[in-house]
Design a protein around this nucleic acid. Sequence first.
DNA 1: AAATGAACCAACCGCATCGAT
DNA 2: GATCGATGCGGTTGGTTCATT
Length: 335
Amino acid sequence: MGRSPCCEKEAGLKKGPWTPEEDQKLLAFIDQHGHGCWRSLPAKAGLRRCGKSCRLRWTNYLRPDIKRGKFTVQEEQTIIQLHALLGNRWSAIATHLPKRTDNEIKNYWNTHLKKRLAKMGIDPVTHKPRADAPAGAASSSGGAARYRAAAHLSHTAQWESARLEAEARLACEAKLRALASPPPPPAPAAAAASGLESPTSTLSFSESAQLFAAGAGHDDAHGAAHAAAVLTTRSYGEAAAAFAEHHRFGDDDAAAPGFLAGVLLDCSAEQRFAAASTAAEASGGERQQEEEEDKGYWSSILNMVNSSMSSSSSSLTSEAVTDPAMMYLPAAAEF
DNA sequence: AAATGAACCAACCGCATCGAT
DNA sequence: GATCGATGCGGTTGGTTCATT
């Protein structure tokens, strides 16, 4: 679908950092008229910028509902968890972090969290322990046994396929729901007021539902899953619940995520690896421990989702993770 | 105090997606 | 169904600030 070069190719348009005057003009215009059509906004507002640049400036910087400053430990946890679940879908992740923009989260991931995980010997893409983890990372002492334990516990591929399956099923359910009761027209203010979406998200609740429904029509389960992945917090909860339902936690093959997520979020990964290693080496107890960890992981996801649904802010950052089996809460989350 | 490198983050770029025609 | 315009999204860049030598 070829796209013509966008407006910034026009001559005379300014690029680069915004000046306070430009900010003021943009703010004043949006305050008075709303943004409406971004493409025509710059001319109306008296700005020599392209609409895209204005939209970005507004979305990432000028909006009054943006929280700036350091990320809290819980925000970090949420990002890591959701990244493990969603990958680089920053806007979907931002949906769960009120007042944070996708750009900010992305930057924070790239400059902080990714490095921390790498330092721990965990692949920030797969969230699995790296085979080639540098000495001094998670493998610094008793590394081999720990990685055996990690490998033993890591069945991410199975988890992933189960997750896709669950999401596909949920997509179908959502389609049915959407057909039964069409979502209200997009009304950002109303939606935000209802707490169904984060002010940082550019994807409205209703849009998500439509996306979900569209995804459900897809023959390809991955397509449906993809649509489902950007869905509301309810869907995440259902996905987790469906996964739990399909793969009872005691099943032999349903293992890894809990352990791994625990490691990711644990300030003392060393201890955790050691614990896992010990457990793995102590015959009999290992499977039970894995199961407990899985339960903990999924409980925490469910808690996260439930709390976000019940709280008007839809925040996952506070009460989100309550299961101590998963969260050995990092007082100073330096991995 | 100056030079250098690292870290940070706002903004850009280009592709994907959606809705209208 | 094809095309087009508008917008959203994620990857990347480059300027600025901070820390170290």
